[in-house]
Each structure stands twice: as C-alpha cells, then as structure tokens.
C-alpha cells in the first residue's frame, strides 16, 4: 500500500514537472470551445441546446490527446519491466496509473468546463448537470484509455492508434453522459442515465487494471 502511494506521488510529481502536457491539454480543450461555436454560428439558443453534447465530445477528444503518456515513460526507461518483478503486480500499478491519468487529464478538463459553459452560453443548472455527469463518466473513459495505452505501449505509432481503439468503446459513456445532462428529458430518465453512467464507471474502473496488466504482460513477452 505504501509503495503504491509512493508510486502515485512519484507519477504526479513527474506529471507536474512535464508541465507542457497540461498546457497542451488546456489549449486543445479551449480551442474546441472556440472552433465549435465559430463553425456553428453565434446562435445562442442553438449553442445552448448543443452545449452538453459539445462539451462531452470536447472532453472525450481532449482526454485522448495525452493517452500515450500513461505508460510510455515507464516503458522507455525500463521501469515497467522492473515493476513486473515487484510484489505489487502490474494490476495494482495500472490502477495507480489510472488514478494519475484521471487526476492529470479528466480533472483539469472538468475544472475548465465552466469556461466552456460560458462560451456555449448554457445556463447554470445545465452546467452543474454536465459537470456532474463528467465527474461520474470520465472514470470510464480513463479506464478505456488505460487499456488502449497498455495495448499500444510497445508501438512507435501508439499515440495514433490508441484513440481510435478507445472511441467506439467510449460511446456508451457519451450516450449516458449527455443523456443525463440534457435538460429536455424528464427527471426519471436523467436519473436512469446517471445510474447507468456510474455503474459503467465502477465496472470499467474495476476491470480495466486487470485488462491493462494482461495487455502489458503479453506485449512484453
């Protein structure tokens, strides 16, 4: 447990040292927040009704941006091979990586979402709903990213291929995420969607570290 904690701190520190990636993430997300309204036109009611869907799409795309970072540094410097022979096991290490990736990618995006809310001129209630669904739904996306990153860790073109592996599998999260945040729905349906979203995140977060560990093991044999 202590070792996992140390690993978590180490990874968070190295993520904050490589500050460039956070800047890239923020710049990408905000660029989408500018490009989408420009492409759609300054029609405020239209933007507001599309807002939750656009924000969810933006978060999904932005979170795929730094996906290859999850394992690549540890793979390149050989730490991953060393981890395999520790008592911790690759699953536990993958779980730590999942938490670190969520903290360094999904969380900043959620914190920035009010800015997107202003750009899309959505009202305060919808904004809170979107942020809540993002909070509940992004763990599922991070879990899928973890598996895709593990699958492509030994590839030079991993950063290119991993996003296309994640996107089709992330569709349920987007459906329930946007479904729960859309104000046009009845209250009952939004609750159903929230429950499904949370269930999905829990199940994916529970299984992803094992799938990722399996992928890491077989890709290094």
């Amino acid at each position: 447990m202590q070792a996992l904690w140390a690993l978590l701190i180490r990874d968070l520190k190295s993520a904050s040292r490589a500050g460039g990636s956070l800047t890239t993430l923020i710049a990408f997300y905000l660029s989408l927040g500018v490009i989408l309204p420009i492409a759609i036109g300054p029609d405020k009611p239209l933007l507001a009704s599309l807002g939750p869907a656009l924000i969810w799409t933006g978060v999904l795309l932005s979170s795929l941006l730094g996906l290859d970072r999850i394992f690549v540094a540890d793979h390149d410097d050989g730490s991953l091979t060393a981890f395999r022979h520790t008592r911790l096991g690759l699953s536990a290490i993958s779980f730590v990586k999942l938490i670190v990736h969520w903290l360094t990618t999904a969380l900043p995006l959620i914190v920035l979402t009010p800015v997107m809310g202003v750009l899309f001129s959505i009202d305060l209630d919808t904004l809170f709903a979107v942020m809540l669904t993002l909070l509940l739904g992004t763990p599922a996306i991070t879990a899928l990213s973890l598996v895709a990153a593990a699958l492509s860790v030994s590839l030079k073109r991993g950063a290119v291929i991993a996003p296309i592996l994640v996107m089709p599998l992330a569709i349920p999260a987007v459906i329930f995420g946007v479904g729960a945040a859309k104000p046009v729905l009845g209250a009952g349906q939004a609750e159903t969607a929230l429950l499904f979203l949370s269930a999905m995140s829990l199940v994916f977060v529970a299984f992803a570290p094992f799938a990722a560990a399996l992928a890491l093991r077989v890709s290094q044999e």
Binding site: V147, L151, S154, L165, L169, A211, L214, A215, V218, S219, E221
Partner: peptide, 13 residues
C-alpha cells in the same frame, strides 16, 4: 506478439 495484444482488445470489445 500482435496476436496476444489483439486478443486482449477483441475480448475487451
């Protein structure tokens, strides 16, 4: 090696 990695993805799918 590809076979094993693809197998993991196939099952995840």
């Amino acid at each position: 090696r590809a076979a094993k990695v693809v197998a993991v993805l196939t099952l995840v799918g």
